[in-house]
Write a protein that binds this DNA or RNA. Structure first.
Lengths: 369, 369
DNA sequence: TGGCCCAACATGTACATACAAGCTCAGTGA
DNA sequence: TCACTGAGCTTGTATGTACATGTTGGGCCA
């Protein structure tokens, strides 16, 4: 009884809409065909012309019909096609596009996204919070199906939290790579930087090095974590670590400060470090130059270890020992997990997390003491 | 008289719509405010409630109003903002994203595009014609305001010409970078590769080298043009060029063929070349290794010259002499010219063309014989 | 035969009425 | 005091009528 009452609550004009759509979908009325006139429909379905008009208005608004005054009402051409494979868009927001390992991440994401039939919207923040906001707002000006985000300057708080929260509110899935804002709960992928830092230091310690200088960029969490692992390795091996053997620098100092300090350290006689752990290969190559300038040979006088296994690591004459991680794969994985979330296939909770263990690649820049 | 008749032809519900919009725009009714009820409006403007409903339906459809049954009709929040600076999108289609100099081009384009308030859609072809088509079709599934295209494998014809022609037909401006399809007339930006090849060879010839081997990737026009300049320099200097001093290779052979041939050439005794001109820095670094393997020192026994002035050029111990060109600037210029075209500011005809003259950067990998 | 006009029919505009359904709030009753 | 009810407002659904406007085609007239 109740059921029937509820059934009956469906308005007539909606019922008519479904009926007409059925006729169109079934092919009884084909694209381009003229519909029966309003009066005819009204008679046939035993309703007033006004109600028919209301239905037709809806269908016209949805693009399924078009009406020509004086001529009649007609079925639109392409509607189902346009509706079924409408292409969706995924956004990726990175700090830098051109530098170093980022292109590989972007490339991985792009190829995975393209393969799944999505488009990729790209934006970068240049590691600037204001630009992060700008880019996010611009990307979201048209509906996005999902976002891959590489957080900007994550060690220094996050004025754009509200924007990220509004993403959740709008039900737009997103995933973070490389780093993560602690305030935001979302799936993320990152290299196990602490483990990498640990492996680097541990490798050198196991080779008998006692005075190891570590150069870390500390305005992002990656550098902080690598440093953490670096310290941990010293603790586990019970090797004392002098504070002046830990060199912090910021992104904009990368071509100045580490080099200068390296030169000082290398000139410091008997207390001179016998090994450098570098934040990444770029810096390692740079400090390799510092060693040359100081008249020291690598690895005989100084061991150097990099991070990322970039193309720079093997471009040098002394091939760099470094920590390798799947740069492009992270982009691919991020895209795939995100698309799983978009398409509702994912069991990946908000807590989902994938850590990539770096692999130590021993080449010729490190040597037993 | 006629005029008045025409005035009177404007339907009441349209008039009411304009009136209400006026009230909203003027601030008399503010976003979030409740509108007068349908009956009230009907009374005030002396029309039936049905007609008022028609107007409100239109405005609701346009997103200016929303209606809540039982509560009333309200003015939407953000409509004017969303309407006035609706964000447009520009696409960029490159062969590779992560390799080498492409990230710089993409970055330049991204930053210029973002600055102008556009969004950037990114896709790559992996130098594959089928994927080029796929990517183009996908990007165009939603309207794009313009496209930056780096042609795919341009030395081998172009099965996708029709797609590009349809761009013109749809009035979507586009611009090509790095290379150009000869069948398509459009503005383009490129490095003057022929001049670069010429400068490289000329530099070595002027240093007294007589036997110079040139390694060129010839499945794209860039390599072909660099080779052209390489040959031209020999002609102008009246220096004979033996055919086996010109090595062609294809993209997928880049890690094999040139290296092998270089090793052969370097082992060929008295006829051994005294200098290498390389398609790019990547290859130059690779052939630097071949020289080391052959026990030859650079630049004393062998001069090597690269192309692109990439980060690899200074990562090596022997800093590479190379040809520099504004990688990122090309992306910036492409974006700016394209946006000028989109916004109709451009006097740039379809024939517009900008050639970047490469600049020879002399470092330590070349030496007077 | 050719041009014109008008009837017939299509959708568009406008108004009237009636009742259904959802929200608010004041007043009632336990 | 608190919960319920119902009056009175809102928008939503449904139908009726009337006339305007645009399209087509057949029939009339020159």
């Amino acid at each position: 009884m109740r059921c029937i009452t509820i059934e009956k609550k469906i308005p007539k004009y909606i019922q008519l809409k479904e009926t007409l759509l059925g006729l169109i979908e079934s092919g009884a009325i084909r694209p381009g065909d003229q519909m029966p006139s309003e009066n005819e429909i009204a008679d046939r379905f035993d309703m007033s012309r006004q109600t028919v008009r209301q239905t037709l208005g809806l269908l016209e608004q949805e693009g399924r019909l078009y009406r020509l005054q004086g001529k009649g009402t007609f079925v639109s051409e392409q509607s189902p096609a346009a509706k079924t494979h409408e292409v969706q868009t995924v956004g990726i927001l990175t700090t830098y596009i051109s530098d170093y390992i980022f292109p590989h991440i972007v490339r991985g994401a792009e190829s995975a996204v393209r393969e799944k039939g999505y488009r990729l919207m790209l934006s970068s923040t240049d590691n600037d919070k204001a630009r992060e906001r700008e880019a996010l707002e611009m990307m979201l000006s048209e509906p996005l199906s999902g976002l891959i985000i590489e957080p900007t300057r994550s060690a220094e708080g996050n004025p754009n939290v509200s924007l990220y929260l509004s993403l959740s509110y709008q039900n737009i899935p997103f995933i973070m790579i490389n780093q993560r804002y602690p305030e935001i709960t979302c799936p993320y992928l990152m290299v196990d930087d602490e483990d990498g830092g640990f492996q680097a230091a541990d490798h050198l310690l196991s080779l008998g090095h006692q005075r190891i200088a570590g150069f870390f960029k500390t305005d992002d969490l990656q550098g902080v974590n690598r440093l953490k692992g670096f310290i941990k390795a010293h603790q586990e091996r019970s090797c004392p670590l002098s504070p002046d053997m830990v060199i912090h620098y910021k992104t904009d100092e990368k071509w100045t400060r580490p080099y200068e300090i390296a030169m000082q350290l290398l000139a410091s006689g008997s207390a001179r470090p016998t090994a450098f752990v570098c934040y990444n290969d770029e810096l390692a190559v740079h400090l390799l130059e510092a060693a040359r300038q100081s008249g020291l040979s690598v690895p005989d006088d100084l061991s150097i270890i990099g991070f990322d296994d970039s193309s720079l690591a093997t471009a040098t004459e002394v091939k760099l020992t470094t920590l390798s991680h799947p740069k492009m794969q992270m982009g691919v994985d991020a895209a795939q997990i995100l698309i799983d979330m978009i398409e509702g296939r994912s069991p990946a909770s908000a807590e989902f997390c994938k850590l990539y263990k770096p692999e130590l690649i021993v080449r010729n820049s490190t040597k037993k003491l």
